[in-house]
Each structure stands twice: as C-alpha cells, then as structure tokens.
C-alpha cells in the first residue's frame, strides 16, 4: 500500500514540477523538497525495522557495537548529504551541491578515523 502511495506522490509531484518549472521555477524546487520529505516520512517507520534487523545481524556477526553505530551514522550522513546535494543539483546549483558533498565526506572521514587507527594499531601489534 505504501508503495502505491509513494509512487502516486512521486508522479503527482513530477507533473506539478513540470508545470511549475516554466512559470515559477522557485516553487518547483520547493515542491521537490516537500515531496522528498513526505516520501521519507512514509518510509521512516519501515526503516526502523531494517535497522533492528541489521543490529541483530551485527550482534551475530561478532561486529563490535562501536563499529555498528559508526556504520549506521555514516549511512545516515550519506543519505542526508545526498538528499541536500540532489536538491541543490535540481535547482541548478552544482557548486553548492559539491560543497555539501565535501562537508559530508569530511564528517564521514572523521567518524572513520577511530576505526582506521584501531586497525593500524592492531596490525602493528600482531606483526612480530
């Protein structure tokens, strides 16, 4: 049922944006932002189940909890950054989009540094 909802919202938004693009391009951007938020809101509940399944899997796979939270944070950041960058790109602001992506990449790198350092220490400790 949700799939139908999402598709309908998507098609209606697309048609609206096509109609608005020529006369009022600023409203076209707003419509695309609102559509993205509404679609995300519809699937947010389902996403909770996915995260739960991933948590269980991570526990079974003996992946430490620190890694798992880091990975989830990184996926979240990647989604948000992609969302912002796509909207900027749709509005024709390529430079802003690349700046948003740069910000996201730096934050992901900062989150990954503890894992990287721990791995390096580990490998050096194992070596005879």
């Amino acid at each position: 049922m949700e799939a139908l909802q999402i598709v309908v919202i998507g098609i209606v938004a697309t048609v609206m944006i096509m109609l608005l693009k020529d006369d009022k391009p600023e409203f076209a951007v707003l419509t695309s932002i609102i559509t993205s938020i509404v679609i995300f809101y519809i699937v947010a509940d389902k996403l909770k189940i996915v995260v739960q399944v991933l948590t269980n899997m991570a526990k079974n796979a003996d992946v430490d909890f620190v890694f798992f939270t880091t990975i989830l944070k990184i996926i979240g950041i990647a989604y948000i950054v992609e969302f912002g960058a796509q909207i900027s790109r749709d509005a024709g602001e390529e430079s802003i989009a690349s700046k948003i992506e740069l910000g996201g990449k730096v934050i992901i790198m900062v989150l990954a540094i503890p894992i990287l350092m721990a791995l390096m220490d580990l490998i050096f400790e194992i070596l005879p």
């Binding site: 950054v81 992506e101 990449k105 791995l119």
Partner: peptide, 26 residues
C-alpha cells in the same frame, strides 16, 4: 544488506572503504 540501504552516488566510495576496514577486522 547494507549495500541495498546505501545511497548511490559519490558517498558510496567512502562507505565502501569503511566496510572494507570492517571486513578486515572481522
């Protein structure tokens, strides 16, 4: 499973790298 959830785009390379670390650790 994670690959399905991942957004496609420029970010994917970075996440792949971190997943690589994770595999090495496991």
């Amino acid at each position: 499973f994670l690959e399905i959830v991942l957004p496609k785009g420029n970010m994917k390379r970075f996440i792949d790298m971190i997943i690589g670390f994770l595999i090495i650790i496991v």
